[in-house]
Amino acid sequence: MDKELKPVSILLVEDSPDDVEITRRALERGQVKNHLLVARDGEEALGILYSRRDADGALPGLILLDLNLPKVDGREVLEKIKSDPKLKRIPVIALTSSTREEDVIRTYELGVNTFISKPVKFEDFIRVITTIRDYWILIATLPSVEHD
């Protein structure tokens, strides 16, 4: 399988260093190869995406986005990604501690591909991360992120 030969790069937008490390460790589990890029706030995330887009560099295959972020909020990042002709094809998974119905609806309206509430239980958190990775990398077909 091609997918296994070529690691998919994942952009994680998360301000909590603890959650970054938990997510990194979760992604390292199992056989699915991936390359993790981390942005610690919305501004940094958009910086990475725009510079790669403008340089015609390889864009991340998948974005894991926390909604409550310093500087530029996750919703705004989502809105910018989904209104950019080149970035909008990248699947965005919202990972948040919110369980509010209006957050779920609003985020889907902004074009998120999946909305996930972070489980408190550490084992569940790990399982959710590895399941997201396996689903998007092994089961789903991702759009090409190379420059056209």
């Binding site: 909590s16 603890d18 959650d19 490390e21 938990i22 501690s97 972070k118 408190v120 239980k121 550490f122 958190f125």
Partner: peptide, 9 residues
Amino acid sequence: KEPLRAIEA
């Protein structure tokens, strides 16, 4: 909940 997840993890 969040600090607790970090303690557990």
